[in-house]
């Protein structure tokens, strides 16, 4: 087994409410190898997004440890870039400027930042839209900008928080295929959080199932479909069987 890239040991997290502390994560253990795509599925409100925010460094755990490549996670950094469910584009910046926004702290020379931004804009299929503002783009195209921004910094770990939940169903499948191609090609390590079982299976090498709140890991499943995968694997028997199995699991925990 390869050296783990992400290591999570006994992480707990709760939030203060008027009725006392609300436990959200109840001792999460997991690890992830470099180049691996891990999907976390769980019911809405199960704490998956909170978990991802901890990995991003946007929140701190109450107890437990999170490490990336052996180093304790301490605050956010572009080496753990994030694709946000609600895109999170700056409405006053153009497509190109939004991608450059992510590169601004990279310390790279300006022209190199620009080259990288243009390159990644091309890879997500947005060439010709560099000067558009987010408002002029569809939801799917806006999320392509979000993906480009997160990829441009060449993160050690790419975090995806329900990346296609705000995109219409047709566009979602196309974008899942596109994202899978890009991360497979570039061997990006990806941690994806989703409530969409099909998305978790289609993109993941491994699927981790969270219980409903407070979240614990109740199952880990290797996805039995070899990569590269095309859209057509969604209808394969193996895919459908794993999908049914995960569905049962989630039903049982709800």
């Amino acid at each position: 087994m390869e050296e783990p890239s992400l290591e999570v040991i006994g992480v707990t997290k709760s939030f203060p409410t008027a009725q006392g502390r609300l436990p959200v994560l109840d001792g999460i253990d997991m690890s992830q190898a470099r180049g691996e795509v891990v999907s976390i599925v769980g019911a809405s409100g199960s704490g998956k997004t909170t978990f991802l925010r901890l990995v991003a460094g946007l929140e701190e755990p109450d107890s437990g440890a999170l490490k990336l490549d052996g180093r304790e996670i301490d605050g956010p950094t572009p080496e753990r870039s994030l694709i946000f469910q609600q895109f999170g584009l700056m409405p006053w910046l153009s497509v190109l400027e939004n991608v450059l926004f992510g590169l601004a702290t990279s310390g790279l020379p300006k022209d190199e930042q620009r080259d990288r931004a243009n390159d990644v804009i091309g890879r997500v299929g947005l060439q010709g839209f560099e000067d558009f503002h987010p408002k002029a783009l569809s939801g799917g195209m806006q999320q392509r900008v979000g993906i480009a921004r997160a990829l441009a910094v060449e993160p050690r770990l790419l975090l995806c928080d329900e990346p296609f939940a705000s995109v219409d169903a047709m566009t979602r499948q196309t974008m899942q295929t596109d994202l899978l191609h890009i991360v497979t090609q570039q061997k990006v390590t990806v941690l994806l959080v989703t409530h969409d079982i099909e998305e978790a299976l289609f993109l993941g090498d491994r699927v981790i199932v969270f219980s409903s709140r407070p979240a614990r890991v109740i199952e880990e499943v290797e996805v039995a479909i070899p990569k590269p995968r095309e859209h057509s694997v969604r209808v394969s028997t193996g895919f459908q069987e794993q999908r049914a199995m995960l569905w049962e699991l989630l039903q049982a925990t709800a």
Partner: peptide
Amino acid sequence: LLIDVGRVFGYSHNRLFTAV
């Protein structure tokens, strides 16, 4: 959300102010 985006991409508190 936009503040979180800035933080994820490594913006300092002061830089978040001018950029976001």
